[in-house]
């Protein structure tokens, strides 16, 4: 590395500068702006200037509004629903597709397709499947003798309708990450466990899972970060309804800002969401560093 002298280091910093500058202007600055707005009464329907400084009023309003707290509950409920199913299904499918059998690499590839589809299209095709009276999903269920389910028109089912669409799109992510991790595991502990006469299930829980754990933890944090941001699928399927049964935090922010044009309140809610996401991101990076040192 002799060629990296002081002079070069300065040039490297110049290489780095545009990226930092652009990210600062396009991400950090809007966040600071959101922080600024959150202390103003900013009603776009009335006047297009930041109006009065209102102190913590917007924060006091959202933190005491049951609507906002409800949206936080729905967000975390949806996160718990999607993450748990994705974890179990994703690991299960990964165990299938890592078998050394013909056709498995092709199956792995085909299963990755949902991830690269626009979330709006995912929403639309599930809307097609759930559609009241016409949708195919209830038809398929009726073949299995299951009564029609009012997927998107019932407060009991709408959150599951959204969860299923998200599970369909992102289970492949857990499958892909787990399969890659499984293929890099060393074979020795397995051979030892097999010689000791353990059953397949014992080998899985005592040898495979402990080795997979750090990867699964990181994958789940990435899914949690994404689940916290979920927006498009809900926008297409239910727009937060029926009632407020699927109003997640991002729908709450959207409605405050663009339906009621109360941008100060929307910004305050945005700032709360930024704080939560910073916690999730920090935990994710901690989980990565832990496997590097482990």
């Amino acid at each position: 590395m002799a060629y990296i002298r002081k002079r070069n280091r300065r040039i490297f910093l110049i290489f780095l500068l545009p990226a930092i500058l652009v990210l600062f202007l396009t991400t950090i600055y809007p966040m600071i702006y959101a922080g600024y707005l959150s202390f103003r009464s900013y009603d776009l329907a009335k006047l297009f200037v930041p109006r009065v400084f209102v102190g913590w009023a917007n924060y006091r309003e959202i933190l005491s509004s049951s609507e906002f707290l409800h949206s936080l509950v729905v967000t975390f409920k949806l996160m718990a629903m999607t993450l748990s199913v994705q974890l179990v299904l994703g690991v299960g499918i990964a165990l299938l597709v890592v078998q050394k059998l013909p056709g498995m690499p092709l199956a792995r590839t085909l299963l990755m397709i949902p991830m690269m589809i626009s979330p709006v299209i995912v929403g639309l095709v599930w809307l097609f499947l759930y559609f009241p009276e016409l949708g195919y999903l209830n038809y398929f269920l009726s073949l299995a003798g299951i009564d029609a389910i009012p997927w998107i028109s019932s407060t009991n089912w709408a959150l599951w309708a959204i969860a299923i669409a998200d599970i369909w799109q992102w289970t492949p992510f857990v499958m892909m990450g787990t399969a890659a991790a499984l293929q890099s595991l060393s074979p020795e502990p397995y051979e030892a466990a097999m010689i000791d006469g353990n059953s397949r299930w014992d080998v899985f829980t005592r040898v495979t899972l402990p080795q997979l754990k750090p990867v699964l933890v990181s994958l789940m944090f990435l899914r949690a970060i994404d689940a916290f941001k979920i927006y498009d699928i809900i926008f297409v399927l239910t727009k937060g309804g029926p009632g407020d049964s699927t109003e997640v935090l991002s729908m709450f922010i959207y409605r405050q800002s663009f339906t009621f044009w109360r941008m100060g309140v929307g910004a305050a809610a945005s700032f709360v969401s930024l704080v939560i996401i910073v916690v999730l991101i920090t935990l994710f990076f901690k989980s990565l560093n832990r496997d590097q040192t482990a």
Binding site: A19, P30, Y33, S257, G266, S273, I277
Partner: peptide, 18 residues
């Protein structure tokens, strides 16, 4: 730099709009 892509888009959409 990596964390910059993990923030919720909805949180910055109002500032962007303005």
């Amino acid at each position: 730099i990596l964390s910059m892509r993990m923030f919720p888009p909805i949180a910055v959409v109002v500032p962007y709009y303005i």
